[in-house]
Design a protein around this nucleic acid. Structure first.
Length: 298
DNA sequence: GTCCAGGTAGTTT
DNA sequence: AAACTACATGGA
């Protein structure tokens, strides 16, 4: 991780092939998002309890601290968060080499050059978001997430505005199913989420363990409520695995249908055929396809 | 009113 | 192992 420390801000030095603007477009996709706020070119977000503004300046990601003056330890944690948030540890050269020879990916990498898998560094947040989004439309998923955060999260006030943080695991672990059902979570999702919070609390589930594992997918899918889609979604956005591939994802199917002008959504077999050339970079292929779902048609 | 949505668990062939 | 079904509720 490359970063510089200054009096009132830090700078993260990204690798080659990084477009802050492309990541910004992804982050701007829903008006119901409350974990960050975008104003002009700046992202406002509470990171590890510190309210920050994040902008692109001097070929770096500049992170200014808006309230307190964080310690060096906090600054390093914020830098680490940004590093994961924009998946900056990844060298995209190999992906682009593969993609320019692939009929599906070629137009995408040209258009969205520098886009990275925007991460969800916190495991609990990533899991809750994935479970919330199971089998419902994205707009409603965002509504559920917003309700959960505003009910159980904490917020930082700055210039008369609220900046929310995702609820702490310990707070969700002690809830009962009814508490989440009141927010319109289904019984099943309420059960899954509370159980997962408890598993994290008792140490049976952690990001550190999953990162060390050979087969994180198996460990994840052994947990009730986590199927292949959710496991791969989390492996992609939280564990930074390039080969994670939520192949049953409806968004992926719609993106392929639109991009390739198909009559109907492709079958799993058809997607596997497209993906033979994506070996090692399935997560990036998926993310670039998702990106094509908003903004003008290619 | 209809169809479908960033699926999963549980049951039945 | 593969196919079917209940779940649940909002958005378009």
């Amino acid at each position: 991780m490359r970063w510089n420390n200054y009096e009132t801000y830090i700078e993260i030095v990204p690798p080659k092939e990084f477009s802050f603007d492309e990541c910004l477009i992804y982050l701007n996709r829903s008006d119901l998002e409350v974990l960050h706020r975008i104003k002009g070119d700046a992202i406002y977000k509470v990171i590890h309890g510190v309210l920050c503004s994040v902008i692109w300046a001097n070929h770096c990601i500049k992170v200014e601290f808006l309230i307190e003056n964080p310690t060096i330890i906090q600054r390093e944690k914020v830098a680490q968060y940004i590093w994961e948030w924009f998946d900056l540890a990844q060298n995209l050269e190999a992906f682009y080499q593969l993609a320019i020879q692939d009929a599906v990916l070629q137009p995408l990498v040209e258009k969205y050059y520098g886009l990275r898998v925007v991460g969800v560094p916190d495991l609990f947040e990533a899991l809750v978001w994935a479970i919330s989004g199971q089998q419902i439309n994205l707009t409603f998923a965002y509504t559920l997430k917003k309700r959960l955060i505003e009910q159980f999260g904490e917020c930082v006030l700055f210039e008369e505005e609220s900046f929310w943080q995702f609820p702490k695991v310990e707070k969700i672990a002690v809830l009962c199913v009814e508490d989440l059902k009141q927010l319109q979570f289904t019984t099943r999702k309420a059960e899954y989420i509370i159980h997962i919070a408890q598993e994290i609390m008792n140490g049976k589930l952690s990001k550190e363990q999953l990162l060390k594992m050979q087969n994180a997918e198996k460990a994840l899918t052994e947990i009730r409520g986590i199927g292949a889609w959710t496991a791969n979604y989390v492996m992609m956005r939280c564990l930074h695995q390039r080969t994670a591939f939520p192949i049953t994802d409806v968004g992926l199917h719609n993106a392929l249908k639109e991009l390739l002008n198909l009559e109907s959504k492709p079958t799993i077999n058809e997607i596997e055929a497209y993906a033979v050339n994506w070996q090692g970079w399935q997560a990036y292929a998926t993310f670039y396809l998702w990106r094509s779902l908003y903004g003008e048609k290619i």
